[in-house]
Structure formats: C-alpha cells, structure tokens
C-alpha cells in the first residue's frame, strides 16, 4: 500500500524531505541515480508512513504525492 509516492525523475536530491519526516523513513536512495544525476529521495517502509504530508510540504519540486488510507469498513474514496 503506497501512501507516499515519489516522482523520482523530478527529484533534485536536496534532502529537505528527509529532515521533516516524524517517522524518519524518508531517505536518499544511493543505489539509484535519476536522469538529472541525483540520488532521489524515497520511502520503502510504506507501512510506517502516517500520511502526515510533511515531506510533500517541504519538497520544493512537487516530487511527492501523499495518500491516506480510508478508515476500515469504508470504501476507498
């Protein structure tokens, strides 16, 4: 379940998103290099994400989309 989605191609590797995550799960993926030549920010522990949106708020390049799961018993909106 992807709660936080990174458009890795647009990432400029500034790392601002990594400093504001309350769960400390955003990191720079040093195994990847995007076409701009940056290690993009990413999250692999999606289950830890609390959909607070701080990383997206802090991102200067609109790289990040955040979703929040619907409450149990409710259909997806």
């Amino acid at each position: 379940m992807q709660k936080v989605i990174f458009n890795e191609e647009k990432c400029k590797g500034c790392e601002l998103c990594t400093t504001v995550c309350p769960k400390k799960i955003v990191y720079m993926d040093e195994k990847k290099i995007n076409s701009k030549g940056f290690h993009p920010a990413t999250v692999t522990q999606q289950e830890e994400c609390i959909s607070c949106g701080f990383c997206a708020m802090m991102c200067p390049d609109v790289v990040i989309e955040v979703r929040r799961p619907s409450k149990e018993g409710k259909k997806d909106e």
Binding site: K3, S51, G53, D61, E65, V66, R68, S70, D76, E77
Partner: peptide, 15 residues
C-alpha cells in the same frame, strides 16, 4: 485511499 497531497491544478506539470 484518499489523495491528501498532490500537485495543485494551477501549477504546470514541469520541472
């Protein structure tokens, strides 16, 4: 899933 954060419509989809 509800999208709570995405690119605003009034912003062009460019880098």
């Amino acid at each position: 899933m509800k999208v709570i954060f995405e690119k605003p419509k009034s912003l062009e989809d460019v880098t």
